[in-house]
Design a protein around this nucleic acid. Structure first.
Length: 565
RNA sequence: GCCCCCGUAGCUCAGCGGAAGAGCAGUGGGUUUCUAACCCAUUGGCCGUAGGUUCGACUCCUGCCGGGGGCACCA
């Protein structure tokens, strides 16, 4: 957008110092630091033996009087701050508006596969499961919005001894009704009962293992039982996913890979990659440079592992989709596993696309009474309900002061939004301290603040009762809060791209928060509806632009925003 | 023992080569006017620690201290 400025600066610098410099433009906050400032002086000072100040002077001289530049100023550490003319700034907002609409998907492009969710079937989702779901979905939304071909892929844990346990419990203590009539809660209580009884009577564990072995062998009754339990869980999961705006494209359970694992093991052995370890187990050993412990693909008792299925899954995806990238949105605790997985794929000699373990930190609890170890995990659904309950309470307290005509819908948006925003506004790599008051915050840097700001801006637009307010009339000068708002709006396209390619949704969350602050400051400082033309039109246009950016950005983060609240 | 991540305001966190930031908590202001779930002002920091690289380090490198995680028959 400011190529002519960059070019002028570059030309002047190379003429003066005889080096072609790297020029970095960056937007900064607000009129006090200029609308655009550069690191030119500092960047070039590294290459030439000259002081930042001297370099800055050259740049300033080159930019002075250029088209679109209102004034320039050299800042303390050698920055050149540039104030653009109002026209020049407003021109850029067209790009911001187009960034609000998703790019058209290019046909036949190799897909990006994003592996996320991974719920356990027959067990309710815990609060910590929200991390993979929400981070993964935000990534998917960002890529899709950017015009990429994306496949969101879920890999539920729908196989394992827990089904044996469940069946044993069902036979022993279940009521007479058929499995399919059970609710997830009833299944869960059977599961819990099994663990209680198994403490007294450890032989139950053996029974469960035997039952599962029979199930693996293909026992018809057990397979039917399994299928029905999966069905019950899936229906329950769907409700939760609808509330969280999670949309899985492809779902393949662990059982899907049952018959795909042996060919992989055979291929590995043929290639000499897979070898015999202790007790007859099958392992992959890595070169010394990798400094990785061996990866086990088959236990000494002959059964396969998580790693075996993951390896088979990579092969399957390569064969069926020829993806350009494989991303795994999984807990940081599994980082060794993914290092091994990638290294193993290399050893197999497979042609690999971009591969990344998009990890996130662990969830810990501020209140020590809640911990996974103590078995007092918070159910995700309960957390959502608690958020909605708190939101509803606040809505009730506000009474007449609220504009919504659908308080239940609003409470749902706010409560769930608060929780999701609490997750997505933090750098995913960091551990998250779970605390009800922090997670369900309704003021300051929170989802309700975004939602409120959006509703507020829509309200102004409604009152203006003017269609298609998208023209930015020429004005002599912009107020400080207008300039700041415009400066932030201009960054939207850049931020979308950055949040997408770095797989860091929190960058978008922080941007949206800053935008709200700027809009609210603007709202408080300037009259909009009462303003004289051309300011009125300009301010309404800025309001429309901010509202669209907020809505677009929030929805990419799986949040919903109300028009009234 | 080895490997990875994290130590920034009282608390929870952004920033990660170029002028120390936000929210919450504290203090003082602002609604006869577009939604006060808001805004404005203000208090609070040797950016864990010791070195190194650089014109310049919260940011990059090394050591140490403190916290978390991982290290073949779990997923």
């Amino acid at each position: 957008m400011y190529e002519h400025l960059t070019k002028a600066a570059k030309d002047a610098l190379s003429k003066q110092f005889g080096v072609v410099p790297d020029v970095v433009w960056e937007y900064t906050q607000g009129p006090d630091r200029g609308d655009v400032s550069t690191c030119i002086a500092l960047q070039i000072a590294k290459n030439v033996k000259s002081s930042p100040r001297a370099v800055a002077e050259v740049v300033e001289e080159a930019l002075k009087g250029l088209k679109g530049v209102e004034r320039t100023e050299i800042a303390g550490s050698g920055y050149v701050n540039v104030w653009l003319t109002p026209d020049e700034l407003l021109k850029g907002l067209i790009q911001t508006r187009t960034a609000c609409t998703a790019k058209v998907k290019r046909k036949k492009e190799a897909p990006i596969i994003i592996d996320y969710c991974g719920p356990n079937i027959a067990k309710p989702l815990g609060i910590h499961h929200i991390l993979s779901h929400v981070v993964g979905q935000a990534m998917i939304n960002l890529y899709r919005h950017g015009g990429y071909n994306v496949i969101g892929w879920s890999y539920p844990g729908d196989w394992g001894t827990q089904f044996g346990k469940l069946f044993v419990a069902y036979e022993k203590w279940g009521s007479k009704k058929p499995v399919i009539k059970y609710s997830v809660d009833e299944l869960l209580s059977l599961y819990v009962r099994f663990h209680q009884e198994a403490e007294e009577n450890p032989s139950l564990e053996d029974d469960a293992r035997k039952v599962f072995a029979k199930m693996e062998a293909g026992d018809k009754t057990l397979r039917t039982f399994w299928r029905e339990v999966v069905e019950i869980s899936r229906k329950d999961l769907e409700k939760l996913y609808a509330r969280l705006q999670i949309h899985v494209d492809i779902e393949t359970g662990e059982s899907f890979y049952e018959e795909k694992m042996n060919p992989i093991l055979e291929e590995g052995q043929k290639k000499g990659v897979v070898t015999r370890g202790e007790g007859g187990a099958l392992i992959v050993e890595f070169s010394a440079e990798k400094n990785l412990p061996p990866m086990m693909l088959k236990k000494s008792d002959g059964s396969t592992l998580y790693a075996t299925r993951d390896l088979a899954m990579v092969r399957y995806r390569l064969d069926e989709y020829d993806p350009k990238a494989l991303y795994y949105v999984v807990d940081v605790a599994q980082s060794l596993h993914f290092q091994q997985l990638e290294a193993a794929c290399e050893l197999f000699g497979w042609k690999m696309p971009a591969f990344e373990h998009v990890y996130f930190g662990r969830m810990r609890f501020a209140d020590a009474s809640m911990s996974t170890r103590k078995g007092t995990v918070i159910r995700l659904e309960d957390a959502l309900d608690e958020g909605v309950r708190r939101a509803a309470e606040i809505i009730r307290e506000r009474g007449e002061g609220i504009q919504t005509d659908a308080p239940e819908v609003l409470a749902e948006m706010m409560g769930i939004g608060a929780l999701v925003y609490g997750i997505l506004s933090q750098n995913r790599k960091m551990d998250i301290i779970f605390d009800w008051n922090k997670m369900l915050s309704f003021e300051g840097n929170s989802a309700p603040y975004l939602q409120y700001t959006h509703a507020r801006s829509r309200s102004v637009l409604r009152k203006a009762n003017q269609k298609n307010i998208v023209n930015f009339p020429t004005v002599d000068r912009l107020s400080a809060s207008e300039r700041k708002l415009i400066g932030t709006l201009l960054q939207f396209a850049l931020i979308l791209d950055e949040a997408c390619v770095t797989h860091m949704p929190h960058k978008l969350a922080h941007y949206l928060y800053a935008l709200c602050q700027d809009y609210n400051a603007f709202y408080n400082a300037e009259p909009i509806l009462q303003a004289a033309e051309p300011s009125r039109t300009l301010r309404l246009s800025l309001t429309a632009c901010a509202a669209d950016v907020l809505k677009t950005g929030a929805e990419l983060l799986t949040l919903r925003v109300p028009d009234r609240m």
